[in-house]
Design a protein around this nucleic acid. Structure first.
Length: 592
RNA sequence: GCAUCUGUAGCUUAAUUGGAUAGAGCACCUGACUACGGAUCAGGAGGUUAGGGGUUCGACUCCCUUCAGAUGCACCA
């Protein structure tokens, strides 16, 4: 039981005995005491003044006195306005550190017996991954890690959009202009090669539109009549009809793309337990449509198309099956949702998808609920904001994207330059150096993208390279390396001190209080699906440790008990930093 | 037009979900034990939380409204 829970319990009793009123535990607000006041735990008193019919100060004082008498850990209190600040005994904090924080499993909750699926990445196979995908991948991976730390059994899946007109465009352009170019012959990564032809297609398409317009067609007509777009559409029809030649080309080019993606995923450090391919799932969902018709949830119009009326829920009428009986986007998503559930029977399912699809997912989940799917309750759309550039939106057709591979290269190169400037890698082997630059460069990138709340839109200026100082990944990595260095110097293993006497310094106490709330942060981050909460917590902890480090001697402490205690505190800090960063997919070095 | 999201210091952002004097970082200025690792630490300056109204003991947070931006409103995916 945490100290907060203990205090809530006793505040409840205090109100009961002082004012003869029952209050619900969750209506009692407890918070961390602000730094400028004495104490560590604060109870907000305002809600009780209604019952006590006395001033907040008087009420706070009476409850404070009650707590002093009934809770052993509470050693003092003060009341400021309506806030009751409680001092908790040093012994309690020391026990927290030695008994909890330093445990191997600290921050890892036991299994809760629940399965959760996280679908993320979901790339198209006609172009390489760009910065927007990077945000998606990092979010999906990190949320998976966080859920796992909270005791969930996590299944990471990737739903690959491997079919459709966009792939036919790349395929066609390659046929027309490729001269048999391959990744081997060009030296290009497969996904980049295919992406190159996607851009070529678009150029050709635009050229043809222009020609048609100048020969008298309207822009709209020209867009429909341009020969390349017609050819691409024919190709899609052939693909759907199972044309061997088209399928062969499709398989070859997708193969190139997958080989490229594998490399990028590996560098990013993300992985998947299961891949779903739209070429397998795009015809799914028709059973579900029939189910809905039988239940009367859907209705059929005269032309044969099938719809659902969501106007009572504040939404529109939505088409779920075309008049000719073919699927639309939501049809296959209904089918895929069912397929995924049948495969895994998970309790929750998280879709990591950009916020331009908010409406789609609202509709999707609502339909599944109306179809009476018990598991629809567990569906969640983790919606995140777009990544914008100063020049505006990224458009892969126009080549105005920040490429994921290039971005990683840049970050790692910057990390290398920065580290060499500081001249701290003497004695590192070449492979150790490469590993370190990788760690720092990607750490900077990942932290930069994850420290912002997912739903906020992200502005990325490629000209201003990402900082390595301040509120950054490298700052935290540096703190970790610094602690490890002190521990190494002390020849310190994992031994614990036991007989630390009371009398913590302010910073020692603050550090323990901060370390002690780590599990709460893990829990909150999972409830909110927010890696940003972890990122900001780890930053706060690192900052605090650096302050402590600066003001209190560790190795030079005269009293050996104090020295050992501070080493314990340092070990605990480095361990929590390392664990928290791992949840963000960021590694931390022993030296840097 | 309708709907959803966003708006916090010059820039990037936080605020324990309605609590105390809105915290940080970057950039700018000033400093730091003769560096247990200076990718650090301390201090200064910088805010009408987009504007206005309301609810509340108490509002960045909830409600209404205006403004700005983004996205969605396809028998595309």
């Amino acid at each position: 039981m945490t100290i907060e829970n203990t205090i809530v319990e006793h505040v409840k009793n205090a109100v009961q005995s002082l004012y003869q009123t029952e209050v619900a535990a969750d209506s009692i607000v407890i918070q961390e005491t602000r730094k400028e006041f004495e104490g560590q735990v604060t109870v907000v008193i305002f809600p009780f003044t209604r019952l006590s019919k006395t001033s907040p100060e008087q009420t706070g004082t009476r409850i404070g006195e009650y707590l002093m008498q009934h809770v052993a850990e509470v050693t003092g209190f003060n009341v400021i306005k309506g806030f009751l600040n409680l001092s908790v005994s040093d012994q309690h904090w020391v026990d927290q550190l030695l008994g909890n924080v330093l445990n191997e499993s600290y921050g890892q909750f036991p299994s809760n017996g629940q399965k959760v699926m996280v679908e993320y990445s979901s790339p198209n196979t006609n172009k390489p991954l760009h910065l927007g995908h990077v945000r998606n991948n990092l979010l999906g991976y990190s949320v998976s890690e966080i859920l796992s730390a909270n005791g969930y059994d996590v299944i990471k899946v990737n739903l690959v959009n491997d079919r459709g007109i966009h792939i036919c465009k790349s395929m066609l352009a390659w046929q027309l202009f490729g001269n048999g170019e391959t990744p081997e012959s060009s030296g290009l990564k497969g996904d980049h090669l295919v992406g190159k032809y996607y851009v070529i297609f678009d150029k050709e398409y635009k050229k043809q539109i222009e020609e048609l317009v100048s020969s008298g067609q309207t822009e709209e007509e020209a867009k429909k009549n341009a020969p390349v777009i017609k050819q691409a559409q024919e190709m899609l029809l052939k693909w759907e009809a199972g044309d061997q030649e088209v399928l062969k080309l499709w398989q070859m080019m997708n193969g190139w793309v997958y080989a490229g993606f594998d490399i990028t995923y590996k560098r990013l450090g993300v992985d998947f337990a299961k891949y779903y391919y739209e070429s397998d799932t795009y015809l799914l969902g028709k059973d579900t449509i029939q189910e809905g018709l039988d239940m009367g949830v859907f209705f059929r119009k005269d032309d044969g198309s099938v719809w659902i009326d969501l106007t009572e829920d504040g939404l529109d009428q939505k088409l779920v099956l075309r008049a000719d009986g073919t699927s639309v986007y939501i049809t296959q998503d209904l089918g895929t949702a069912q397929l995924k559930y049948d495969d895994y029977k998970m309790d929750k399912s998280i879709y990591v998808v950009g916020n331009e699809q908010d409406y789609h997912f609202k509709v999707l989940f609502l339909i599944l609920q109306k179809l009476g799917k018990s598991w629809a309750e567990g569906l969640y759309h983790l919606s995140y904001g777009m990544v914008d550039l100063p020049s505006g939106k990224m458009k892969s057709r126009e080549g105005t994207v920040v490429d994921a591979d290039e971005l990683m290269d840049d970050m790692i190169r910057t990390a290398k330059e920065r580290t060499e400037e500081l001249g701290k890698v003497d004695g590192f082997s070449e492979s150790e150096k490469a590993n370190l630059y990788d760690m720092i460069g990607l750490g900077a990138l990942k932290f930069f993208l994850l420290k912002v709340e997912p739903k906020k839109r992200l502005l990325f200026d490629p000209n201003e390279s990402i900082d390595f100082q301040g509120h950054t990944g490298p700052f935290i990595q540096y703190t970790h390396a610094r602690i490890r260095s002190v521990l190494a110097k002390a020849g310190y293993s994992t031994k614990l001190t036991s007989n630390y006497q009371e009398g913590l310094t302010v910073l020692e106490r603050e550090l323990i209080v901060t370390l002690a709330k780590y599990p709460d942060v893990i829990d909150a981050a999972a409830r909110e699906y927010s890696p940003a909460m972890i990122a900001n917590y780890i930053y706060e902890l690192s900052k605090l440790y650096n302050k402590f480090y600066h003001e209190e001697s560790i190795l030079k402490a005269e009293d050996p008990d104090v020295r050992n205690f501070r080493l314990d505190l340092s070990l605990a800090s480095s361990s929590v930093i390392s664990k928290g960063m791992k949840l963000l997919g960021i590694r931390v070095p022993e030296r840097m």
